[in-house]
């Protein structure tokens, strides 16, 4: 493998990492504020992609302009999920959150399949054929937009959390819920807001993914969501910098390791393809990290 190829693979990993990061930040935000985990986050991504698809189909405007609309719709859905699903069961045990999410997964996947069939849907990007050369690497404009969007979002998000009153209130809630409530912060509103924001981010990830050339099916959310959970766990629950580093790392490692494994086995004289092991490797990494540090690399105390 020559070094040019290696750099290229790093870039693809980076791009793949962006989707994980958008999902992971949303998950982290919700966890931080409410201390609950929505396992159906991937289905929220899927619904975001479908929202973008339908708006695009009926309006046929520039798909990038649709993203805010899709985010808004899914943010409202997020509020519903929070109010009707997670809030009532808060404090009844962590296992219940998993069960509720499981129900949501079944509900959303099959509802979408029922309403809109399992046909693969796609959105045509106006920049689909534009490729930007950066040094030796040719980067499609769509990916550049995704990377820029992710960076802009992370910065905006950090500013929001640090500079605005609402953001500070959210941070206070995630640090100490009781104290925040005593200070006069409406913690329930913070819960709702965190779910809305987190879901909107998942919707953005779904829409961006669809526009960049992926196809939407009712089952599209499961794999990215599982990866995003791995990212959140590796990075440490509630840690946003952790999620960024872990997202990038996972995106790169899961792409590079199968190749290294093939070469290693090749040295031993066997010929074997490990490219189908991507998910398996992601879980191996997850398990190793958790065995060494049960709270993740950047996690302080976890739960």
């Amino acid at each position: 493998m020559d070094i040019g190829v290696f750099i290229q693979i790093l870039v693809w990993g980076l791009y793949a990492g962006c989707i994980y990061i958008l999902l992971a930040i949303g998950l982290n935000l919700i966890f931080g504020v409410m201390k609950v985990v929505n396992f159906a986050h991937g289905e929220v991504l899927m619904l975001g992609a479908y929202a973008a698809f339908w708006i695009y189909t009926y309006s046929s405007i520039n798909p990038y302009l649709i993203i805010p609309a899709s985010m808004l719709l899914i943010a409202i859905l997020g509020v519903f999920i929070e109010r009707l699903g997670f809030r009532p069961i808060m404090g009844t045990g962590k296992l219940n959150e998993i069960f509720l999410s499981l129900g949501l997964i079944y509900l959303f996947q099959n509802l979408v399949a029922f309403l809109w069939s399992t046909n693969s849907r796609s959105i045509r990007s106006p920049y689909g054929e534009v490729v930007v050369p950066i040094g030796a690497i040719k980067l499609p404009l769509d990916y550049l937009i995704i990377i820029i969007f992710t960076i802009v979002f992370i910065i905006a998000f950090q500013l929001f959390m640090k500079k605005t009153t609402t953001g500070r209130a959210m941070r206070a809630t995630s640090q100490n819920r009781e104290a925040a409530a005593l200070m006069g912060i409406n913690v329930e509103r913070m819960d709702m807001l965190s779910f809305a924001l987190g879901s909107a981010l998942a919707a953005a990830a779904g829409s961006l993914w669809l526009i960049s050339g992926q196809m939407a099916t009712p089952y599209m959310g499961s794999i990215p969501a599982i990866k995003a959970f791995a990212v959140v766990i590796i990075g440490g629950l509630g840690s946003i910098p952790g999620a960024i580093v872990a997202g990038m790392t996972l995106g790169i490692v899961e792409n590079v390791v199968p190749l290294l494994m093939s070469s290693l086995v090749g040295i031993l004289g066997f010929e074997m393809s490990f490219t189908a092991w991507k998910d398996t490797i992601a879980f191996f990494i997850l398990i190793i990290v958790l065995v060494i540090r049960p709270t993740g690399i950047f996690g302080e105390k976890g739960e």
Binding site: V37, K94, A282
Partner: peptide
């Protein structure tokens, strides 16, 4: 050493 959904993810991974 794992609890709740850390454990869920690891078992899912297995």
């Amino acid at each position: 050493r794992l609890r709740e959904w850390f454990l869920g993810m690891v078992t899912f991974g297995f």
